[in-house]
Design a protein around this nucleic acid. Structure first.
Length: 443
DNA sequence: GCTCTGTGTCATTCC
DNA sequence: TCGGAATGACACAGA
């Protein structure tokens, strides 16, 4: 009897500490949350503005520790509510509970239960609830307009309306290097093209890491349009890759091998290692055609003040000025587009990794929930058995046993235990708690 | 011939 | 107001 009573009263502590299943879970999840901090997985925290240049997302994304490492140790503790330990829990050594039988008329003397403390509901990040779909290569189905055809030649449509189109003096005349005129592409061999592509990728990566913003820097780095240091332009104003190309400048010859737009331009990125002729870019050809007296490198990479100063050193026509500014704008925008695409790819990679981590975390939490539910079911079953055992040994003054249907055992915060008749409606809350914990006995 | 990918360019917005 | 960065959208070439 004493042992059974001690077991029972040890469990009845749950009536005040964790009265309901929901609270029990909430409490456990609260613990979990403390043990496995989310470390700012939310979109807001991870979408910091990336650095303007150079470093990618190092400062934007937190150091991500695999969930298994973050919560693995704690998981053992969380799963430790096995039956063995639970049995130890329901059998505390010191026990000072005092049983008092209360008559139905004594309800006013019964102290009220302490406020049930409910932990905050577990709150988990929704993660990637919204699909982030980037239509990077969305195909347009509409018919190309006349403007499209014009823009296909590469000229600015709106940035410099009055001065643009130095290649279209008449406004609508077709450029001499539009796509239709592009002949059988490059004469370089396939091996050379492969080499260019590879070096282009290398340069692409380096480009993103360090953008050149100064003229000095631009002189050190290969530019998009010129493959030679700035100093070389003192002799050859243009970034011709070989004497043949330079000769083509004076004759205003347009190299038909160069695609007008969109195709990966070998000399847009790479510095040719061979003596094979490299086709000029469209802007280079245009600049040559208009006898722009300074190289592409300077046009694109000079700081604005130096660039404006450079313009003052020459007397340029409006057409030349418009072309130079368009070249500068296009050159900078090309680099910006490359960086933008790289950031977009990095963002996709990070989001995919984050999604995988959230899936892993969801699996872990599901397992924990299953374990908690199993532990709770065991506690309920054990309490029900002890409850019945205690009632079977209780006798009233007439020697008759108390009915579980009419009475319930309640413990107050001060440790006293009362045999409470169900008819006492003021204790309805306690009855509800008891019935929740003792579904078998309450019925 | 179609699809996908990479790239350049334009338009627009924001700083 | 200007310059430039950032980015969506589009066209194009090549695989």
């Amino acid at each position: 009897m004493d042992v059974a009573w001690q077991e029972l009263m040890a469990i009845t502590e749950l009536q005040f500490d964790a009265p309901t299943e929901g609270s029990f879970e909430a409490m456990q999840y609260q613990s979990m949350e403390a043990m496995t901090p989310m470390e700012g997985y939310g979109m807001g925290s991870s979408q910091s503005v990336p650095p303007a240049s150079g470093e990618s997302y190092n400062g934007c994304y937190h150091n991500e520790v695999p969930l298994g490492h973050r919560s693995g140790n704690n998981m053992d503790a969380m799963y430790s509510h096995t039956e063995t330990q639970l049995s130890q829990r329901v059998l505390p050594a010191p026990f000072h509970a005092q049983l008092t039988v209360i008559a139905p008329g004594e309800q006013n003397s019964f102290p009220g239960p302490s406020q049930v403390q409910r932990g905050p509901s577990a709150h988990f990040s929704q993660g990637l609830s919204q699909n982030m779909l980037w239509s990077m290569h969305e195909r347009a189905l509409h018919t190309r307009s006349a403007d499209d055809l014009e823009s296909d030649s590469g000229l600015s449509l709106g940035s410099s309306p009055s001065l643009a189109s130095p290649d279209y003096p008449g406004g609508s005349s077709a450029p001499c290097y539009q796509s239709a005129d592009v002949g059988p592409t490059y004469s370089d061999g396939e091996a050379d093209m492969t080499e260019r592509v590879q070096s282009a990728h290398i340069h692409y990566s380096m480009e993103y890491q360090s953008q050149c913003h100064t003229y000095v820097q631009s002189a050190r780095q290969p530019s998009h349009f010129s493959t030679q240091p700035i100093a070389s332009h003192t002799q050859t104003q243009w970034s011709s890759k070989d004497p043949d190309q330079a000769g083509a400048v004076n004759s205003l010859h347009v190299d038909p091998r160069v695609p007008s737009r969109g195709s990966p331009h070998p000399n847009s990125f790479t510095k040719p290692q061979t003596s094979m002729p490299t086709p000029l870019s469209r802007d280079e050809r245009k600049a040559k055609a208009l006898n722009i007296p300074f190289p592409m490198d300077q046009i694109i990479n000079l700081p604005v003040d130096d660039f404006n100063e450079l313009l003052t050193q020459y007397t340029l026509t409006d057409t030349q000025l418009a072309l130079v500014r368009d070249i500068r704008r296009r050159g900078k925008n090309k680099v910006a587009a490359q960086n933008c695409r790289k950031r977009k790819l990095e963002s996709i990679i990070h989001l995919e990794a984050e999604l995988n981590q959230l899936k892993t975390q969801k699996e872990i939490l599901s397992k924990q929930r299953f374990e908690f539910n199993r532990s709770l079911a065991f506690i309920k079953r054990r309490l029900s058995e002890l409850y019945s055992q205690v009632f079977s040994r209780l006798r009233d003054e007439d020697g008759q046993p108390y009915s579980v249907k009419d009475y319930s055992l309640q413990q107050t915060p001060d440790g006293k235990v009362y045999l409470v008749p169900h008819s006492m409606k003021t204790w309805g809350k306690l009855d509800t708690i008891a019935s929740d914990l003792l579904p078998d006995c309450a019925n």
